[in-house]
Amino acid sequence: MRPFQYARPDSLDHATQLTAPEDTMAIAGGTNLIDLMKLQVETPQELIDINRLTMGEIADTDDGGLRIGALATNTATAAHDRVRSDYPLLARAILAGATQQLRNKATTGGNLCQRTRCYYFTNIDQPCNKRDPGSGCGAIKGIARLHAILGTSNHCIATYPGDMAVAMAALDAQVLITREGEKERTVPVRDFHRLPGDTPEKDNVLEAGEIITGVTLPAPVEGKQIYRKVRERSSYAFALVSVAAVVAMTDGRISRANLAFGGIAHKPWHDPRLSELLVGETPSAAVFDKAADLLLEDAQGYGENDFKIPLTRRALAATLADATGVEL
């Protein structure tokens, strides 16, 4: 860990001032940032501790939704009464991630900014375009077990590792972002994370000096909410593939299918075409297969992660079967 200056702002405005310079980072729970600072993957010269700002509130919004403060811990969010009753998908996704110790520290904002677990990213003696632009990608010709099958580029095949944001993408949540002297801006979770393209160093659309203040969930909608996570251990492992689903049925036909996927792309993967394809259909194995065909039509494996293509197909079918009551 490089030496750094440690500071604590006394207001949100102050925080956005302090975090504006390059080489400055905000720290909340620290469960990802401190990990990466020890490895010198992250080397901020100034660390702005925003934990004492009052951004941990979880409150109803005027339109019947829920606003989750950026500093609300994962534990607090998953245990919140309305999250449990109206957004069980979010509670389930959070509870499927990490451990209680980590969730007690991890925050909404920090979790959104969680960086990839790519082995080449976390090893500073290996090439990685995300960590060190222009140095190459070690994973493409290396061990790509954890890696993406959709939306990759020649520069990066890393995945976004989290669970919470995958659920938020299915729930069509909005990220609230503020910067000094400007009005809060709103970015859909679905657009918050980026694809790597030729700038894989940028995980998301957050600019220097911007701070996430919270996430809003729209008013709850009808439908069954399911989070299915496939992993190598029964707990405490990142997703090989995960599926977040909000699926409703009307008169035997699918009337809503909001789906998002984890573990397969540089961002929580949301393909709006799936909803278009599924809504109005009578659920069946063949329909689920068609959805998987569409989802995976551009999927590309990198050897070690080829299995994610059939695994995603099967996880999707299982989730849709569960949601619609179809026996497979």
Partner: peptide, 15 residues
């Protein structure tokens, strides 16, 4: 490549 306890998977309680 998997030189830590996050990615070298020793069994956990639930296993």
């Amino acid at each position: 490549v998997n030189c830590d306890l996050a990615e070298y998977h020793v069994p956990v309680h639930r296993d």
